[in-house]
Write a protein that binds this DNA or RNA. Sequence first.
DNA 1: GCTCAATCTGGGAATCATTCTCATTTATGG
DNA 2: CCATAAATGAGAATGATTCCCAGATTGAGC
Lengths: 157, 157
Amino acid sequence: MAHRSALVPVAPKLSSRQEQLLEALRRAGRELSGQDLHARLRASATPMGLATVYRHLRQLQQWGRVRCRHLPSGEALFAPTECDEHHLTCVDCGQTHRLEHCPVHALELSGEELRGYLPLFHTLEFYGLCPDCQRRQRRTASEAVEAAGQSASLPSA
Amino acid sequence: MAHRSALVPVAPKLSSRQEQLLEALRRAGRELSGQDLHARLRASATPMGLATVYRHLRQLQQWGRVRCRHLPSGEALFAPTECDEHHLTCVDCGQTHRLEHCPVHALELSGEELRGYLPLFHTLEFYGLCPDCQRRQRRTASEAVEAAGQSASLPSA
DNA sequence: GCTCAATCTGGGAATCATTCTCATTTATGG
DNA sequence: CCATAAATGAGAATGATTCCCAGATTGAGC
Ligand SMILES: [Mn+2]
Ligand SMILES: [Mn+2]
Ligand SMILES: [Zn+2]
Ligand SMILES: [Zn+2]
C-alpha cells in the first residue's frame, strides 16, 4: 500500500465499477481474459457489460493497477499488478508452469535506462519444449530419416 | 551454429519458403508483424500468401527459430530468436524504447525450475509511464481536484 | 522423362477477441 | 426536480489470425 502510493504520482480513486473488476481479478487467484471477467461479472449482482469490462481493464492498466500478458495463442490475460508471476510455456503444446520466483524482481532498470519513465510492471515469459513434445519431435524426425534412409540416397542429416 | 545445434535436439532443415521468411525477418532489422512480412514477401520474386506466412511463423516458433511478443495493442511482432531484445513501453501513449542489454541473459532458470523443458527463448518487457504522460496525468488530476474544490462549477472551457 | 501420392500453397470465407457507436441510464450539483 | 456531464452496454464494426479446400508443386519409384 505504502509501496503503491509512493510509486504512483496520480493514483486516482477507483470507481465502484473499477473496484468490482479489480476485486474479481483478485478473487480469481489466476489470470483471466476479458471474456472470463465478463462472464463472471455478468452473473454478479451488478452485471457489467463487455464494453465496460474492456474499458476499465485498459484504464486500470494505464494506472498501473492491472497488467496484461498474451499467451502464444494470442489470448490476453489480465492480473492485478501486485501479483508478480511468470511462466514457462511449451511452444508446441502450450502447457505452462508458474515459476516460483520472479528473476527480475530485484534487478531493476538503471536510472539511465529508465529515461524518466515511472516503472509500473513488467512481463517475463520463458518458452521452450516440454519433455513430451521433445520426444514427439524426435520421433517425428527419426521417422522422416528412416523413411528417407530406406530408399537409397539422401545424405541430408 | 554450434550453439544452436547443441540446444535443439530436432533442428529440421528449413524449407526454402521458411528460409525466405526467416531471411526477411533478419534483413528487416526490427520486429515485424505477420502482415508486415506478408507485404514484404508479396513484393518479392516469389510472393508468399498470408496463410503461408502465418503457417511458417508458427512452425519456426515451435522450432525455436522465431520468437513473438505482443504490443499492449495486441499486435504480434516476430523476430529471429538470435536477436535478444527487450523494451520499455509507456502504457499510456505506447512510446517504446529498446533496452541496451538483456537483464536475464545470464540469469537462466535453475534445473529444478526447468522441469525438463528445452529452453528456446524468453520475452521480457517493462511498462511504465513516460515523462510526458506523467505530466499529463498529473495535470488532469489537479484539474479534477480544483474543479471539485471550487464547488462553483463553470463548464466553460 | 512419366506417374502418382504426398505435401505445399494461397484465395477467400470463417472466427473471434477487442473496439467503436450511440441511444439510454445514472451521477452530480444546485 | 432540472440541467449537464459522465458512465454504461447492446449491437455493429474492425482486423488479425485461422480454417478450408481446390489447385500447384515435389520427388520417389519406375
Ligand atoms: Mn516479475
Ligand atoms: Mn533477453
Ligand atoms: Zn509441449
Ligand atoms: Zn506516454
